[in-house]
Simulated scan of single mutants.
Amino acid sequence: MKEDVMVHRPMRKLFYDLSDAGRRLDLSLVDIGAFVVERKMRVCTPAAGLLVEFGLWENEGSVDQYAVAEEVREVSGLVDLRPQDALAIIQSGSAAIEFLDAASGSYRRIIRTEGDPPGFAVRRENLGVRHEVLQKLADEFGVDLAEPTALPRLGALRTHDWDACMLEVSRLFYFEGVPESKAALIRHVQAWFASQGPKVPDESTLQKKLKDTWAMFAPEARKRRA
């Protein structure tokens, strides 16, 4: 008698976090940010019991623009973010947003009751992509999301988000200037990792990761010391 064999099929997910979406499409965090601002990838986040004001913009784009509220509803589920808000969260790690994405000429404003902190706090790890959005991109890239081989082996998972780390280094150099020494840069990066979670890379790992970057920008540090 032939035994029945259960075939494992990957579950179709409703939502893929950015790390998962990036692995499936072979995109870095910087790549995803570019897709978001070009409106080629719509990013969302889960929400529950979010009070949202739906309305229209009158004289949109002019100095006389003003909002006309139509209704207030409680929203739960996956909510889409405006590209500028999604990019800010991708780059900085978190942000408090005041609006959700909406069609041109309309708006969705998040209402916070008295005593609540301003804005709706969203962290990078809570950002993701809906299945239909990822599927459309996968079709363009020629990637089969249903294939088990599309998922990485456990040993391939990265302990640290180096793409996000290099975004932080770029932000530091651009807005605050090059640190006075490589040791100061390493201390800054370790503090940044500590703010993101419990796992902080050791100094020897950071020495290797930041070696080429520091070699490029070290002359600027020497100029500042002179």
Rank of each mutant, 00 (worst) to 15 (best):
S181P: 00
L134W: 01
V30W: 05
E140P: 03
L151F: 14
A184L: 09
I89N: 00
L185W: 01
R39T: 11
I89L: 04
V189G: 02
K136V: 10
R112N: 10
I90N: 00
E220Y: 14
L14F: 12
N126Y: 10
E74Q: 14
G177L: 06
V75P: 03
V52K: 00
P10Y: 09
T159S: 10
E125D: 14
K199N: 12
A164E: 02
M11K: 13
V143M: 05
G142W: 01
A48N: 14
R39S: 15
L167H: 03
V178S: 02
R109I: 01
S204A: 15
E203T: 12
V75R: 04
H188R: 13
V63N: 12
M1K: 12
R123E: 15
T45G: 04
R73G: 08
T149G: 12
K208E: 14
I32G: 01
G119C: 08
E176Q: 15
A34F: 09
V36D: 02
E60N: 05
R123W: 08
S92Y: 11
D64C: 08
L154D: 12
G142R: 01
D116F: 04
V200Q: 01
A47Y: 02
A86N: 02
L151Y: 11
E132Y: 07
A215Q: 10
V37N: 07
P152T: 08
D163L: 02
L151C: 12
A96R: 13
D116M: 13
D163H: 04
D17G: 08
A34L: 12
E58I: 14
V122T: 08
I186C: 06
H160I: 08
V79H: 06
L134G: 03
A21L: 04
R9G: 10
K13D: 06
